[in-house]
């Protein structure tokens, strides 16, 4: 069993410690510091959150997505064909993203995440996975003035992001994670989604994980198991129905077991999580489980995010019978 995170991590520490990232971003927006100076701060903070995950004892890390303004524009700004518009709610959270608008053909013109991934890995004492927002979710959260149909938009994004996956693949990562929360809200699009995932992953050799969250996969299970991924991430907090869903067919992949609530401060008890783990092993053996929070941890204050990770590690130790 591998402990991991789903992606984001709080960018600033709790008060009264100074929020270096926040201050730097403010000064950058006022034109007081350069883009290079901001990048330098973002890298320091990235190093710090990698260190924090490693210290706590998480097995498979991310860079905490410190440089992501939000999960959509981090990619859209770097692809050709998009303009960036006003703020919109990120699913049912109180976090907002800027809506990209496709005004021309969406094209990949060069690596988007590779430099960040290289930096993060170089500073990480543990294996670190890159994460990308998938083409279906990108298209759902954007709008288009260019594409004749939504299908065209999704498939064009899939092709563009396939280039990004290939570029990441060349870095030989332990795993590449693709986030597709939007498919849970539009399950009737599953055949389009299947096509998008095939295009997206073509020619990629690294192990791949598809993460869903903020809902359940009823209605697209067990079909989701046919997709070209080695692991599927499911959210058992916002999607408790995933429990029943797993009864319907054997779970044939590795499972990203999202069991600690990434969106509430209440800290789950070790016993409570152990019981859930016990229950999930009726479907998936321990050695095919990634134990992780239900979503990215940026919905929480830093101190609580860290406590959730500590809890994951305690649960793993208790489950494997290793002294805490």
């Amino acid at each position: 069993m591998i402990t991991t995170v789903v992606g984001s991590y709080p960018k600033i520490p709790d008060l009264p410690a100074p929020g270096r990232w926040r201050t730097a971003k403010e000064r950058f927006q006022r034109g007081e510091i350069s883009a290079e100076a901001l990048l330098e701060v973002e890298r320091e903070v990235t190093r710090e959150v990698i260190q924090e995950q490693a210290e706590v004892g998480i097995d498979l890390l991310t860079d905490g997505q410190i440089r992501w303004e939000d999960p959509v524009t981090y990619f859209a700004r770097a692809l050709e064909g998009f303009e960036i518009d006003g703020l919109q709610r990120w699913f049912d959270t109180n976090m907002y993203y800027r809506v990209p608008i496709a005004v021309g053909e969406v094209q990949w013109t060069g690596p988007i995440t590779v430099d960040d991934y290289r930096f993060a890995r170089s500073t990480s004492p543990k294996p670190l996975k890159p994460v990308i927002t998938g083409p279906y979710t990108m298209a759902r959260l954007s709008s288009s003035r260019y594409y004749a149909t939504f299908e065209d938009f999704v498939l064009s994004l899939s092709l563009a992001l396939n280039h990004e996956l290939r570029a990441l693949d060349a870095e030989d990562p332990p795993l590449i994670q693709i986030d597709e929360p939007a498919i849970l809200k539009h399950k009737s699009d599953f055949s389009l989604f299947r096509e998008a995932m095939a295009t997206l992953t073509e020619g990629v050799r690294a192990p791949l994980a598809l993460y869903t969250y903020f809902g359940d996969v009823s209605g697209i299970y067990p079909e989701i198991l046919d997709l070209p991924f080695d692991a599927i991430g499911l959210d058992f907090v916002a999607g408790p129905k995933n429990w029943e869903v797993l009864e319907r067919a054997p779970f044939t992949k590795s499972l990203g077991f999202g069991i600690l609530d990434a969106r509430n401060t209440r800290l789950e008890g070790v016993d409570e999580v152990l019981r859930a783990l016990d229950r999930i092993t009726q479907h998936v053996p321990l050695d095919r489980i990634f134990l992780n929070p239900s979503a990215g941890l940026e919905f929480l204050p830093r101190r609580v995010a860290r406590a959730k990770l500590e809890r994951l590690v305690e649960v793993k130790r208790a489950a494997l019978g290793v002294g805490v």
């Binding site: 709080p10 709790d14 929020g19 971003k25 927006q29 703020l87 109180n94 204050p301």
Partner: peptide, 8 residues
């Protein structure tokens, strides 16, 4: 504690 809503 502090939680981000958008941007900074």
């Amino acid at each position: 504690g502090l939680v981000r809503s958008y941007g900074n």
